[in-house]
């Protein structure tokens, strides 16, 4: 029974009971070489990025006018992002943002699915640093396109001052809008992704580690409860599959939304 935990939770820093934030600690891959920042979770993110690049290269390789199965699949995936996110939210200006949107949804999706994939079994974005990194990229993108379109001064005015606010309230409203658009937006973007995956993975750990302990307890009744707990963890894995896809979609939709609000015409 000892080998269930390493099989279902191979990348955890600490599998003692009860699972806690310490269970999410990374392990250096090459300890003692002075490159401790190369840890298992970072390597997982790199593998995820390489996978995304490989998948899209395979999809787009040797394209023909009449698509074959491989190209058809790729076009379907691309069209899904283009039509339901790009065109829907960004309207006619969607084209320059498609590479970013497609890249970010596939990268998040692959990394979230790592949470349910053997070998990895750990969603990369349950480490908050990775989520902050992604949110920072989206933040740079929407501010950059806004400044490029309107110029710095006009963009700041547009983002911090809603129409029709009387002059007397400006001093109160401008900091409020500033914090809302430039601080809470990226933080909530990152926290939403992180918290969903962190919580989901923590629940899985409770079921798997707790179930294993119950099975090993030696009492028949406890062992039966532990077996049910391990079985039930698979239901949670299925739920996490859904959450992973949903969060990848939401992150991309919100990025598109922020870009759209940065370049939208005033009305």
């Amino acid at each position: 029974m000892h080998n269930i935990v390493p099989l279902l939770l191979p990348l955890e820093g600490d599998t003692s009971w009860p699972p806690s934030a310490a269970s999410f600690n990374s392990r250096p891959l090459f300890p003692g070489l002075g490159i401790d920042w190369v840890n298992n979770h970072m390597m997982q993110a790199v593998i995820g990025a390489l996978l995304v690049i490989a998948i899209w290269l395979i999809f787009s390789h040797r394209q023909t006018v009449v698509p074959g199965k491989r190209q058809f699949l790729g076009e379907m995936a691309y069209n899904l992002v283009r039509n339901s996110i790009g065109k829907e939210i960004l309207g006619s200006e969607f084209r320059p943002f498609m590479p970013y949107l497609v890249a970010i949804i596939s990268f998040i999706l692959v990394n979230n699915l790592f949470g349910e994939l053997f070998l990895f079994m750990f969603p990369t974005f349950s480490k908050i640093g990775y989520a902050y990194g992604l949110a920072l990229m989206s933040w740079l993108l929407y501010n950059a396109v806004g400044i490029k379109k309107y110029g710095f001064g006009h963009y700041m005015k547009k983002m911090t001052l809603p129409d029709g606010v009387p002059v007397g309230l400006w001093i109160l409203i401008i900091p409020l809008e500033f914090i809302s658009n430039f601080v809470t937006r990226p933080i909530t973007l990152a926290l939403r992704l992180f918290a969903n995956l962190f919580a989901g993975h923590l629940v899985i750990m409770v079921f798997v580690i707790g179930g294993t302990m119950l099975i090993e307890s030696g009492t028949l009744f406890y062992a039966a409860a532990g077996g049910v707990s391990i079985l039930f963890s698979f239901a949670i894995f299925a739920l996490e599959l859904l959450v992973g896809c949903l969060q990848a979609y939401i992150f991309t939709v919100l990025t598109a939304q922020y870009v759209s609000s940065a370049i939208a015409e005033e009305h």
């Binding site: 809302s180 658009n181 937006r185 939304q257």
Partner: peptide, 20 residues
């Protein structure tokens, strides 16, 4: 702005007001 965007803007503004 679509419904989703409005919802997020509302949450973000409420949080910002309380925090600030």
């Amino acid at each position: 702005m679509n419904d989703q965007g409005q919802g997020i803007t509302v949450v973000s503004l409420l949080l910002a007001g309380l925090l600030l």
